[in-house]
């Protein structure tokens, strides 16, 4: 019964903390008469959020779709590149510098360039930004996963005279899958953040990023915060979904 206790604790403790923080926030906004453009109260944000649920959902769908496409494309490319690098380590050595560069530069900085390349009316630039941001952690984690194949499993496959495709399917991919999904979980928040921030640099309206800027520039601060709340929820959704996948892929693995 210990796990049950710790699970309920793990849920209850943050909830209590969150409620307390919201209370303090609400009370201090009221007590110190903080202006809405500095910080609206939680109740105000919640009211705005409630009133604008359809538009927030719509904006979240636009940004979420960009992030999802980026996550899928970047994820597939990341795994594929890792497969190649695992087969031919030369590729890994050749690309190490590029990968290192990509992992330190802020990918969203590419957004303005991509808008001019693909036209400011298309979502393509945002999806590409998200895909590149996703690619790096998925590639690095997958490559690490492919290197986890235990020697005894490799020997076993050789003893069975298994063909390379069979080895990949029965041993290499299952060994690497927890690592691949860890990469995807890390990448999921990056995908949402990149897709959202990329909207600040141009492109069509409708997404969360554009909605936040336009609400803020028309002095509708509580609405801007309602969109921020929407993007937090979107990020959590992505994170939760990929965390679930990761858990699923890591069942029956000795914790290592």
């Amino acid at each position: 019964m210990r796990p049950a206790i710790s699970t309920s604790r793990a849920v209850v403790a943050p909830v209590i903390l969150g409620v307390a923080a919201l209370l303090i926030w609400q009370l201090s906004v009221m007590a110190f008469d903080i202006k809405p453009f500095v910080l609206p109260s939680p109740v105000e944000i919640a009211t705005q959020f409630g009133k604008n649920i359809p538009t927030v959902v719509q904006a979240s769908t636009v940004t979420g779709l960009n992030a999802l496409i980026g996550l899928i494309v970047g994820g597939i490319l990341g795994v594929a590149a890792a497969v190649l690098a695992a087969i031919a380590p030369v590729l890994d050595e050749l690309s190490a510098a590029v990968v290192a560069a990509l992992s330190v530069i802020p990918i969203v900085a590419l957004a303005p360039v991509l808008y001019t390349m693909f036209g400011a009316g298309a979502q393509t630039a945002r999806q590409i930004v998200a895909a590149i941001a996703v690619f790096i952690p998925v590639y690095l984690n997958s490559l690490r996963g492919f290197r986890q194949v235990r020697p005894v499993h490799r020997d076993l496959m050789r003893a069975y005279a298994a063909k390379p495709v069979q080895v990949t399917r029965t041993v290499t991919l299952p060994t690497a899958s927890p690592f691949i999904f860890t990469g995807l979980r890390i990448a999921s928040s990056l995908a949402v953040i990149s897709a959202l921030i990329a909207e600040y640099f141009g492109g069509p309206v409708g997404g969360l990023g554009k909605s936040i800027t336009s609400a803020a520039s028309s002095s509708n601060y509580s609405l801007a915060w309602a969109y921020v709340l929407g993007s937090i929820i979107l990020g959590l959704l992505f994170y939760g979904a990929t965390l679930g996948l990761e858990r699923l892929a890591s069942r029956h693995r000795p914790s290592a």
């Binding site: 005894v152 020997d155 076993l156 069975y160 298994a162 899958s177 069942r251 029956h252 000795p254």
Partner: peptide, 27 residues
């Protein structure tokens, strides 16, 4: 030949039955 290593070397993501049938499946 059939081989058994010092470590059992089972595939942890497969059930016991799926582990035993692995060579049959591969062949």
């Amino acid at each position: 030949y059939g081989i058994a290593f010092q470590q059992a070397g089972l595939l942890p993501w497969r059930t016991v039955a799926a582990n035993i049938e692995l060579p049959l499946e591969l062949h």
